[in-house]
Amino acid sequence: MLGFAPYKHSPPYPVLIMFKFIPQATLLLLSVSTALAASPRMSSLKVSQPEAAVMRACTQDELCVEILPGCEGEACASGEADGKVFSLTGGQRNPVYSRYHLAELLSPNEDTSLQLWPKLIRFGDGILAGAETKLRSMYSGGGASSTTLHLIAFLPDQAPFVVLSVPQSASVMIRACFSEQNMKQRAGACHDLYDFNASLALTGAYAADMPVLRYRSKATSFPGPVSRSKDSLSGRPLRQRDILTVTDPQCSYQRLYRFDPATRAYIANKPAPDCSDYTTP
Rank of each mutant, 00 (worst) to 15 (best):
L128F: 09
G143P: 10
I174W: 06
K134A: 12
T247Q: 15
G91N: 07
S98C: 08
D195W: 06
A77R: 14
A207T: 10
Q158Y: 07
G126D: 11
S165A: 13
P118V: 05
Q60W: 04
L233Y: 03
V47G: 01
R258A: 08
T34I: 06
L128Y: 06
D157H: 09
N182P: 00
Y266F: 05
L88V: 08
Q49N: 08
V65P: 05
Y194M: 11
L63R: 06
Y194C: 03
R136I: 12
R99Q: 13
P249M: 09
R175C: 05
S252A: 13
V54M: 10
T279G: 03
P160D: 05
F161N: 04
G124A: 14
T147C: 07
G91C: 10
M138L: 13
R241H: 11
R241Y: 06
P167K: 00
P108E: 07
G130F: 04
P225H: 01
K184W: 00
V246F: 05
P108G: 01
E62C: 04
Y215L: 11
R264D: 03
L213P: 09
E51V: 14
I243R: 02
N269T: 12
D82S: 15
C64P: 07
R56M: 13
P14A: 03
F123L: 03
P108M: 05
K84T: 02
K218V: 11
Y257M: 07
I17T: 11
C71D: 15
P50G: 00
T220M: 08
T34Q: 10
L155K: 08
S113L: 14
T263D: 01
L202Y: 11
A265V: 02
P108K: 03
P118Q: 01
A176Q: 07
N94W: 11
K134T: 15
S146C: 05
P271K: 01
V96F: 13
R136N: 12
K8I: 15
R175Y: 08
A170F: 09
Y206E: 13
A129M: 05
C275M: 08
P23V: 06
G91L: 06
F178P: 00
D209V: 03
L68Y: 00
L63P: 01
A159E: 15
S234P: 00
R122D: 01
S137K: 07
G91P: 09
G204Y: 03
R93S: 12
S232C: 03
A208L: 07
A187R: 11
Y139W: 12
G91A: 04
L193A: 02
S10A: 15
C64V: 05
Y13M: 05
G224L: 02
I22L: 15
R255C: 11
T220N: 11
K230T: 14
R56C: 09
Q49I: 05
S78M: 07
S137D: 14
F19Y: 14
T245E: 09
C76L: 04
R228I: 04
D82R: 05
A37H: 09
N197M: 09
F154Y: 07
V32P: 01
D61R: 04
D209G: 02
R216C: 07
P50I: 12
A144D: 02
P40C: 02
